[in-house]
Structure formats: structure tokens, C-alpha cells
């Protein structure tokens, strides 16, 4: 083991609890490389720890293809329909040591219509996995279930590209996340009336920044305002910029992180960028993660660097 790999392994401390560290990979836009990044991050981390990828891109799952599995025995639908009782039974071994997959492959056609109870059941099931690290690969869009999976994780990674369409969707995703968080806190605090008032004046609120909205709530109700602030601050958010074509695109990554702070009031770390590279589609053709197909490529080096930044930045979480 080289010195740098050993150092990284040492940074990943032993899990002192029985639950795995959960990393969610999301972002509003489709086709920006969430599944690609998930599979390669999993390959990197599986060199040090037991890793399970859970494909929650429900209805459009393809982690099994990214990780080179042609078919799977069980799927998430089996767990939701109680055909499978224990979530661990969904884990399929992959061809890579220390790396398992819970696939969404061949899910039932109504899998995209998850209820809150389904989401809670899945989150509870994910926490029972025996791996050290679980990586959730989320789908595009701003469905409540997707946002809830994203915020339930110990580390939430937003993937975006430098194009305006991607940036717009990333911010849209964060706005929905903000409102979803508000909703959860209001209900947890038995503040249904406040919530109803907020929703009734949603148009007015949308003209304000999330920061300002929280401040307004705090001025009216200190307990509620403080609870929302604590909830937002507990989010361990970071951003990865994918498919960059020019070095100064990196500024967009720093920019998204900064906007999270100034506009959303959420601390966000920029983990790094991945270049647009033909090595990626070449690896996809082989149904292999680029970290395996072309470990010397600049893309693989960039993913390793991002993973190290993630590991090194997780002082807030218990495990990484």
C-alpha cells in the first residue's frame, strides 16, 4: 500500500456505531454524471472499506450496468412489497472486492410513486446494511422522495456541470430541499398553523432568499427559527463539478458552494471537478467504471482527489 493510499485509509476511521456512513449523490439535472460518479467513488472507497451502492434512481436505474452486472436476483420493489423482509438480502456481490449493489433494476412500473412511508422504510432498511459505507445514487428531478433520500445522508454530494441548465436545476433542487426541510421541521415542532401560513404566502416567500425566510421565521418564533437553522446546518453538503471543458469552469464549482452559503444559508464545500474525457464513454462501452478501465486517466486521478477531499472534509460525520 503506497503512503498516500495508507494515509487515506487511515482517514477513514473505524465505524464506532452499527450503522453505515451514508453518502448521497444527487442533483437536479439528468445526464450530468451522478451514476458515473457514484460507481467510481464506490470503486475508490471499496479499496479501504466495505461499500454498498444503492441505486435509488428509481425507474431509470442503471448502476448494475455501470458496475458490470447483467442481471440481479432481487430489487428494491421486492423489499417495498414485503416479498423480501430484510434489506440486506437485496445486496448483490459485484465483480469488485468489497463492493456490493442494491439494484433498482427491473423495478415495478409504479416504483417512482413512493409514499413518505416507503421512503422511511427504505431509509431504515439502508441503515441496517453491514457495509461501512453506503452510497445512494439518486435520480434527476425534485421529487420529495429524492430530496428526502438526499438529506437523510451523512454526506450529501450535489453533482452539477458548468452549463446554465445544470446550474439552474441544481439551485432548483436546493430550493425544493429548503422547503422540504422547512416542512419537516414545522411538523416536528407541531407548528402546522405556521406552515399553513407559509404555504399560503409561498409566492411572497419565493421572492426572498431562504436566508431571509429563516430570519423572518426566527423573528416571529425563536424556537422554530432556531430549529430550522440547526436542521439546515446539520446538512453536510458538498458539490462536484462534472464534464468541465475549460480550467476556469472550476470557478462555477466554487461559485455554487459560495451561493449555498450566501443565498441558502447552508455551508457547502467544493470537492473538485472532473474533466470531460473520452475515457469515460470508452469505459461505459465496456460496462466498467473508468477507475478500473483506465485508472491512469486524468478523470480517474480527479475522482481520487475528490474522494480524498470528501474523506478529509468530513469532520462533522462520525465515520468518515
Amino acid at each position: 500500500m503506497s503512503e498516500s493510499i495508507e494515509a487515506t485509509a487511515n482517514m477513514i476511521n473505524n465505524n464506532s456505531t452499527n450503522t453505515p456512513t451514508i453518502i448521497a449523490v444527487g442533483g437536479g439535472k439528468g445526464g450530468i454524471g451522478k451514476s458515473f460518479f457514484t460507481s467510481n467513488l464506490a470503486i475508490y472507497l471499496s479499496r479501504f472499506k466495505k461499500v454498498t451502492v444503492v441505486d435509488l434512481d428509481l425507474g431509470s436505474s442503471n448502476q448494475h450496468t455501470c458496475l458490470g452486472l447483467q442481471s440481479v436476483r432481487t430489487t428494491i420493489s421486492d423489499f417495498l412489497s414485503d416479498k423480501i423482509v430484510h434489506f440486506q438480502e437485496l445486496e448483490e456481490p459485484t465483480r469488485y472486492i468489497n463492493l456490493k449493489l442494491v439494484s433498482g433494476c427491473f423495478d415495478s412500473l409504479n416504483i417512482t410513486q413512493l409514499t413518505d412511508a416507503d421512503v422511511q422504510k427504505l431509509i431504515a432498511g439502508i441503515k441496517t446494511l453491514n457495509s461501512d459505507i453506503v452510497i445512494l445514487d439518486l435520480g434527476a428531478g425534485t421529487a420529495a422522495a429524492t430530496v428526502d433520500f438526499f438529506t437523510s445522508a451523512d454526506n450529501s454530494i450535489l453533482v452539477a456541470s458548468a452549463e446554465p441548465t445544470s446550474i439552474e436545476n441544481a439551485y432548483r433542487f436546493l430550493k425544493v430541499l429548503f422547503y422540504r426541510k422547512l416542512q419537516h421541521v414545522f411538523l416536528a415542532q407541531n407548528a402546522q398553523e405556521e406552515l399553513a401560513r407559509l404555504l399560503a404566502h409561498r409566492d411572497q416567500f419565493q421572492e426572498k432568499s431562504p436566508n431571509q425566510i429563516v430570519k423572518d421565521i426566527y423573528q416571529r418564533n425563536h424556537v422554530l427559527g432556531r430549529a430550522i437553522m440547526n436542521d439546515l446546518q446539520s446538512l453536510d453538503l458538498s458539490v462536484v463539478l462534472n464534464q468541465i471543458r475549460m480550467s476556469h469552469d472550476e470557478q462555477v464549482g466554487h461559485g455554487i458552494a459560495s451561493v449555498c452559503n450566501k443565498f441558502f444559508g447552508v455551508w457547502c464545500k467544493y470537492l473538485g471537478a472532473i474533466s470531460y474525457d473520452d475515457a469515460v464513454w470508452q469505459s461505459l462501452r465496456k460496462s466498467q467504471p473508468v477507475m478500473i478501465a483506465n485508472p491512469q486517466s486524468s478523470v480517474s486521478q480527479q475522482i481520487s482527489k475528490i474522494a480524498k477531499n470528501l474523506v478529509g472534509s468530513t469532520a462533522k460525520t462520525a465515520v468518515l
Partner: peptide, 25 residues
């Protein structure tokens, strides 16, 4: 770095800050 990020035409503030807000910032 901040001047680059918050230039009124910066892609990083697209749909977040209006041009006037960017000028104020």
C-alpha cells in the same frame, strides 16, 4: 475569487441573484 463568482454575468449566480443584486453584492 469572489469578484469572479459574483460578476453580474457569472454563471454561478444564474437564477439566484438578479443583476441589481449582483451589483450590490
Amino acid at each position: 475569487r469572489a469578484k469572479g463568482i459574483y460578476a453580474p454575468d457569472s454563471p454561478a449566480i444564474y437564477t439566484i441573484f438578479s443583476r441589481d443584486e449582483a451589483v450590490q453584492l
